[in-house]
Design a protein around this nucleic acid. Structure first.
Lengths: 225, 225
DNA sequence: CCGGCCAGTAACTAAACAGTTACTTGATGA
DNA sequence: TCATCAAGTAACTGTTTAGTTACTGGCCGG
């Protein structure tokens, strides 16, 4: 028992700083929390992220965080969902179906690589989510439909490539995407251990450029007729 | 202040269970802690791992853990170092230099894939370490020499392949290893989110087998003359 | 023009946590 | 044969953490 002493006067001494500015902009506060949470979860993972740190980074306090998002886990799921929506939305803009097969696949590879490069927090969130075996993603209802468009468009491009005789008959859309994503994800997400053990800095502009070309080359070579 | 009440008799009431069996086997205890820590860190990451949980999994208590390894961070570094030593040691046994170039590269790809498949905890530890930008690995003194052998042998095989005219002149040893590791690492470490978003279970025996063949094919295609 | 309601604040709490301390046990070698 | 010391136990402590509570202030519909 800690609070056995029943004093009824401890709450009267609060509220001292009075020159406080009320924000009164719910949308802005919500967005600030989401952005701060994205950074905190990406940098520290689910287990390492601190709710206090998120509130402070967002320039608000925990009460608002719990008010808008319920708890730490639901906030994390929101962050993850937003990250997926962002990449899939940008990806749609490519319209890879409108190009020649080789160009379409090449463009998808370039886009994916450059997106990963510009959004390390996305890679990090994926890593965290996979550490936990997609525990939170599985609960998401928003994300079931989001990814079918990519595979659909990719299937069309590959089918056209086969008809034109430029792609091998056994080329598979999911395999092609996994190949592109593998080569980009691993190079970037594991760059720190790789640079350390092999004694070669992978993140120099030259090496990044060389790997970009490598991804496009390998992807196209893997499905060449 | 919590312990303001200065009672001097709180320590006399300890030590009640007396039918305790003393292990008295330091090597076994140390190994049990290391194994338990490997699992705990792999499952929960650095931030999520619990020292109490490690002690319990090892069938011992925190005192021994701190006695043998100093603190949580040094224990984690030991785990990481052991994991690297294990894969590099197994890798050496391959002697890829003793085979034909194509066979050597193919065997390295097969070995790497199968090792990743059998040791998910290794992939997980890499993920955790990279989340923290190799913060602990960088401090390791044991690991500087460990990896040069792999690149050395790989360089020889590739040079021989070029001389024999079966590999392209611009084939690079590090790129080849990164290609192999990328394709294996991403497929396995990200299988949970991938299976969820694409609605296709990646871990079935058939799909694993198909991806194994894919890795060998892609790796060889990427450096074919 | 005012009462309730929503955005917001900061102190609080119970539980969990890494790390420590006080103590026990038994084998060993002087 | 007994002092010593490595191996081991479990309770303890100070701090951090997720989540809660008590309260403030200004806008808006009646």
């Amino acid at each position: 028992m800690d609070s056995a002493d029943g004093s009824g006067e401890k709450k009267t001494a609060r509220r001292r700083s009075s020159e406080r500015v009320l924000q009164r902009d719910p949308e802005r506060t919500r967005a600030a929390i989401l952005e701060a949470a994205t950074k905190e979860f990406a940098e520290n993972g689910m287990g390492g992220a601190r709710v206090d740190a998120i509130a402070e980074r967002a320039g608000t306090n925990k009460r608002m965080l719990y008010h808008y998002f319920g708890d730490k886990e639901r906030l994390y799921l929101h962050v993850l969902e937003e990250a997926y929506v962002a990449i899939r939305t940008a990806e749609r803009e490519l319209h890879i179906g409108d190009r020649s097969p080789k160009e379409g696949i090449g463009e998808l590879a370039l886009f994916t690589w450059r997106y990963f490069l510009k959004h390390p927090e996305f890679l990090s969130l994926l890593g965290t989510e996979n550490l936990h075996r997609a525990r939170w993603l599985r609960q998401s209802v928003r994300l079931k439909e989001l990814h079918s468009h990519l595979i659909g468009e990719l299937s069309q491009v590959i089918a056209r490539g086969k008809a034109e005789g430029v792609f091998a008959e056994n080329a598979d859309p999911l395999n092609v995407y996994l190949t592109i994503a593998s080569l980009g994800y691993f190079y970037l997400s594991n760059q720190y251990t790789l640079s350390t053990i092999f004694g070669r800095e992978l993140a120099t502009p030259e090496n990044l450029d060389a790997w970009e070309r490598h991804i496009v080359h390998v992807t196209l070579a893997s499905i060449a007729a």
